[in-house]
Amino acid sequence: MSGVTLYALTGAALVGTGFFGLIAARHLLRRVLAFNLIGSGLFVYLGAAGARGGEADPVPQALIITGIVVALSASALAVGLIVALARARGRAMLPEEDVGG
């Protein structure tokens, strides 16, 4: 297995794990982590796509760096919202999903 294939498969595995977390987790912080896993998986895959054919393609690298900044801003806002919601409700879950547990 070549290095590029390994990277692509790792990316796919990260996306799969994150997707499971996004669906299965009700705690909002876990969902934000799952979102970050999927994002990272996509970036690893994009990096692998850019490394095909021997020489590195600079465009995916620029895209990944931009994407990381975007994901960071989104995560920061999401975590801020979770904190505010947890302060207001006492639990870091959406009202309609907060059953039992």
Partner: peptide, 29 residues
């Protein structure tokens, strides 16, 4: 509290939406 919950729900939909879009962009590239 209800505005925060509405914003959080919006955020989750928006995050899933951007990931799906991003996945498509990665495949196109």
């Amino acid at each position: 509290p209800e505005a925060l919950a509405a914003a959080m729900r919006y955020m989750l939909f928006a995050l899933v939406g951007s990931l799906l879009y991003l996945a498509g962009v990665v495949l196109v590239y």
